[in-house]
Each structure stands twice: as C-alpha cells, then as structure tokens.
C-alpha cells in the first residue's frame, strides 16, 4: 500500500540520495515536508508511512514532526499564512499587519476560516528581518514589506 504519490516518493528518493546509504533517516525532515505538501498536513498514518519508508521507528519520526514547528499535525486551511511577529518585524509594523489579518479573516492566530480557505499562524524569526513585516504562504513562499494593502491583494490571490 502506498500512501504517497509516485511524484512524492521520487522526491523523497532524491533526498535520500544526499546521505550515506545507511543514513536514510537523514531524509526524514524532507520526507515529512514532501508528505505535508502533498497531504496538507501530517496525519499519524502519514508519519508512520514515512517512518517505515525510511526504516526508522514511527515514534522517532513523530518526534521530528512535533519538534519543528512548520509541520502541521492537524488539518489546516488551503492557504496557511504565517506572520512573523518577532521583535524586528514588530518594530517594523508586524502588530498592525497581524491585527489587519485577524480583522479581515475574522479569525485569531492558530485558527482556520470556516470555509477552510485560510489558516493564520504566528511565526518566529524567518531570517529576513530587513524586509519585514513579512509572512510565509504555505511554508514555502515569502511575502515581504507587507502593508494592509499588499495583504489584501495577497489574500485575494489565494483562492
């Protein structure tokens, strides 16, 4: 039984190839990311499948999935917007953007809109402070220099 698509498995195999043959566990972070990209979030079955694919204990993969905070262990909206609220971004106006996002979407941080379209999250430093306020869309795309207007435009584009 395969739980991930052939494309996802091919990507995982590419990641495994980076490490010594007896170190497949090294690819677990990438494999969980790839699985999450496909599934939207990481159900326990998915984590167990990834662990088995890499030949590691399921609980060890679960440790990884719960340790790094970009993995989602419960369903999220189609579009996850993670706003950095750390100090440099805060100084550059992240609080205002956060309030705007919450008002606009009618949800708080850590919540999902009833239509399942957006999830709003608060993030830690993304390593691009000079461009703040900034957010990540679905973990992988950064939007910088946010203003209420650019936020509105972004939200509109995320169908």
């Amino acid at each position: 039984m395969t739980m991930l698509t052939a494309e996802s498995l091919a990507l995982i195999d590419q990641e495994c190839a980076k490490y010594p043959a007896e170190q497949r566990q090294s690819a677990v972070m990438a494999a969980l990311r790839i699985a999450q990209t496909e599934k939207g979030w990481l159900a326990k079955d998915t984590i167990a499948y990834v662990a088995d694919y890499l030949g590691m204990p399921a609980i060890a993969a679960y440790e990884v999935a719960t340790f790094y905070n970009m993995y989602e262990l419960a369903p999220v909206g189609r579009h996850k917007v993670t706003l950095c609220t750390n100090l440099p971004c805060q100084l550059q106006g992240a609080d205002r953007i956060g309030a705007h996002l919450q008002n606009k979407l009618g949800i708080g941080f850590g919540e999902t809109t009833p239509d399942g379209r957006y999830t709003l999250k608060e993030g830690e430093c993304m390593g691009a402070c000079g461009h703040g306020p900034l957010c990540l869309h679905n973990n992988h795309q950064m939007h910088a220099h946010l203003t209420p207007e650019s936020v509105d435009k972004l939200l509109d584009e995320l169908k």
């Binding site: 980076k18 972070m29 440790e63 990884v64």
Partner: peptide, 27 residues
C-alpha cells in the same frame, strides 16, 4: 555538496543541534 532544509527550529542554528537535525532527529 548537498542542501539540508530545516523546518522551523531556531535551536538548529546551534552547531550540534544542526548535526542532529541532519541526522534526521530532533534538533
């Protein structure tokens, strides 16, 4: 050379946590 991608843990900037993370463990 290869790239290893983190996934949200400041502590992995600590060099030995980073090594643990490359090994596929908690950082």
């Amino acid at each position: 050379l290869h790239a290893h991608h983190g996934y949200g843990a400041y502590i992995c900037g600590e060099e030995t946590a980073l090594l643990e993370s490359i090994e596929g463990k908690k950082g």
